[in-house]
Design a protein around this nucleic acid. Structure first.
Lengths: 132, 132
DNA sequence: ATTGACTTTCGCCATCTGGCAAATTATAAT
DNA sequence: ATTATAATTTGCCAGATGGCGAAAGTCAAT
């Protein structure tokens, strides 16, 4: 392994001096005060998401990259949408997704409600008339 | 269209009550105090990235999705064709998505079928008996 | 109406973020 | 060395976050 516990501040400073930029220059590019940037770099302050977002670009980071480094996002191959329905089993059919997305939220919720009713119905029916 | 200027707090509350969870239940699932959750939902406090991350999972959001809704990440054009998590026009409720994803494809399609039937029904009913 | 259990909101406070201005340190040029 | 200038760090403070416990609503059952 290459990096032993390198902190966010160190990463940021490394980027800045590599570019290279002074604190003040970075400050004016990002509209973040140089004193705050300095404290961030030496770990005296921890940057908020708002600040991270401001400095990402000028430092050459992707937003989500920096967020991950900061521990705000869990490490992940960037783009997530429907691809990982948290708990494994199936994935949502894209067509279904598309159609539902065009319905108001209440309708979407109603659909789920109806679905669960139908499922419990079908369960009791199956019990009464065991087929197969 | 359906949603005009819906705030992060409202989204969060909508999700929570839909699941459904009480503030206290969500609080203990997320290790965030119920009072803080409540204030977030009614817009009196703005959640930090750390808090957002804690509540994303239990509410059925992807982390980056919630970050985007909060304005911490810029909306991603990324590789997603099917579902547009951009909340402006039509976005599929993450909870709905999660539930449906666990159903077999035939069921997912059946749901859409039923939905369209209900819609055409409601349309003709509204025509026959114009109310209001 | 009243009690009791549960849920949400409020008051208060510790802690942290982040900006401004002053102080300190580094870098150059004479 | 000395001074001028630029870069970084520190002191201080306003504002925001977020937790804890108390107060205020809700609602069902009696």
């Amino acid at each position: 392994m290459s990096n032993r516990e390198i902190s966010l501040g160190e990463i940021i400073r490394q980027q800045r001096v590599t570019i290279p930029l002074t604190l003040q220059e970075l400050a004016q590019k990002t509209s973040v005060s140089p004193s705050h940037l300095g404290r961030m770099e030496r770990g005296e302050r921890f940057p908020s998401a708002r600040i991270l977002r401001k400095i990402a670009g000028p430092l050459g980071f992707e937003e989500d990259e920096l967020f991950t480094l900061a521990g705000y996002l869990s490490p992940q191959p960037s783009t997530v949408a429907e691809s990982r329905p948290s708990y494994s089993s199936g994935r949502l059919d894209p067509y279904v997704s598309k159609v539902l997305a065009n319905e108001p939220t209440e309708v979407q919720h109603a659909v789920i409600g109806i679905l669960s009713i139908l499922k419990s119905l079908s369960k009791s029916i199956t019990k009464e008339i065991p087929q197969g």
